[in-house]
Amino acid sequence: MSKLTDEMLNKYLDGDLEVSDLEAVKEELNSDPDALARLRALRAVDATLKTIEADHAPENISDRIMKKISAGKYTVKTAPAHFFISIISILLVGIISVTVAAFRSASHSSANNNLVDYTDKIKNTLVKNAESAQNFFSNPGVVFTVGALTIIFLIAAYFTIESHKNFTKKFNSLSN
């Protein structure tokens, strides 16, 4: 009974064997005519399969497809602009949060929950937040740190995008 299984011969054929197994298989093939015959047959199958030709699709298939496309029934749907959608979502969430905060604060402080009260509260909350942001950024240390971090972030983003572009270009040129 041959030690070399069909599985190992397939791996040998595909170059999938570990270096340590490769030597053992080569040695075994030298002393096992049955395994060698199976490997030769596998090679013949492999070589034949490499010559498989595609069937011919029906002659006018391209015209039929293009006719349907030009009839306007099928369109390339445009992809949603994820970036803008996320920015708008963040803004919306911010506005809703401020409004909810203002409403809650109004209902806690006063029993008179009229519309004017709510509008004032929203205005107050926005002003308060703007003031605290202004105070925060009036510190030169904070401005310097935020500025430096922004520059570092922008440079890193630039290099990441460039390297991604180069990789994509290389990958596509290899695959086409």
């Binding site: 397939n10 015959a37 030769r40 047959a41 013949a44 399969l49």
Partner: peptide
């Protein structure tokens, strides 16, 4: 699946002794 397909074809090739002619 690839290995089984090749093995099945290989067994038939050996059965009909085609491998000598094909290599």
């Amino acid at each position: 699946l690839l290995h089984r397909s090749r093995n099945a074809l290989k067994d038939l090739l050996i059965k009909h002794n085609y491998q000598e002619e094909m290599l």
